[in-house]
């Protein structure tokens, strides 16, 4: 037995060592760079620089874009997750497989092919041109960037909501109906509250990558809609200003931690009960 417990204790140690070296240490480096200047002296100037109107605008824009993309994903995903959950088990399996399949394709190339669709001389406008409509200007607009986010992260919203919905006990719904609920109130009072955990994890999985993306805004926004991700990437890859980039990453982490805590608080305390 002694030997066994020793093994048990030791089993997690590679993971602990790895986490310290490659999760904790890198984050310490981010903080170190965020609070120092180019010569390594302690300073807050990287953060005061972020309070310029233009950077504030970038942060606000990123939050807004990610927020809208998340809301849109939720609105689009919820009904489809619900419909899939209502289908026969065999169909369900196939439909979910079809939802996941696009995620196996490289997301860069899928976003790139949206460019071919949305351009002024692109496929959609050529198609509309046959009927004498257009061309409608779509690419390099805020809408195109949000569309890219919704497209790329929609499956991340569908899957958790579906997995919660498919586990909802049908007898609960029957009971609600028996007690006099109409189909609409069954959904709002029973199904929806039960699916809150799925919604929460879906929101997290869409919001976090949306707010930090840089490829989508570059390709579909034409460089006119800089987001936090673009700005961070530029500091590290071309401007060579690690300190500013690190402070921006630090703020980005804070935004995410704060919004997740607020959301989880709702989920833990009241969540389903509120609604």
């Amino acid at each position: 037995m002694n030997k066994k417990s020793l093994i048990q204790k030791a089993a997690a140690s590679p993971h602990i060592v790895w986490s310290v070296l490659f999760i904790i240490a890198p984050l310490i480096f981010v903080m170190y760079y965020a609070f120092t200047d180019k010569d390594g002296n302690f300073t807050f100037s990287n953060f005061t620089e972020l309070f310029q109107a233009s950077y504030l605008e970038i942060f606000m824009r990123s939050v807004c874009f990610a927020f809208l993309a998340t809301v849109l994903c939720l609105i689009i995903a919820y009904p489809i997750a619900y419909f899939i959950a209502k289908a026969k088990p065999k169909t369900q399996k196939i439909l979910i497989m079809l939802v996941m399949l696009p995620m196996w394709m490289n997301f860069l190339i899928r976003t790139y092919s949206w460019m071919a669709l949305l351009e002024d001389t692109g496929i959609i406008n050529t198609f509309l041109g046959i009927f004498g409509i257009g061309p409608i200007h779509m690419i390099n607009t805020a809408g195109a960037v949000i569309l890219g986010m919704v497209y790329n992260y929609l499956p991340y919203m569908i899957i958790p909501i579906h997995s919660v919905l498919s586990k909802v006990d049908n007898r609960l719904l029957e009971a609600a109906a028996d007690l006099g609920s109409n189909p609409f109130t069954v959904i709002t009072k029973v199904v929806f509250p039960l699916s809150v955990p799925g919604i929460i994890s879906g929101i997290t999985m869409v919001f976090v990558p949306s707010i930090s993306t840089f490829y989508i805004s570059q390709k579909l926004g034409g460089g006119n809609f800089d987001l936090i991700g673009d700005t961070i990437e530029r500091q590290f890859q071309t401007a060579y200003n690690y300190n500013l980039g690190a402070s921006m990453s630090f703020v980005l982490m804070l935004i995410i931690i704060v919004s997740m805590t607020i959301m989880n608080k709702y989920a833990d305390d009241d969540g389903g009960v509120i609604i």
């Binding site: 986490s19 999760i23 890198p26 984050l27 981010v30 840089f214 961070i232 990437e233």
Partner: peptide, 24 residues
């Protein structure tokens, strides 16, 4: 604590994970 640390790479935006490792 271990589980929280374990969740960091999943919760953190990928770009932050990327640059933090690059800095290291």
């Amino acid at each position: 604590t271990i589980l929280t640390v374990n969740n960091i790479p999943m919760m953190n935006p990928e770009i932050v994970v990327g640059i933090s490792m690059m800095l290291l």
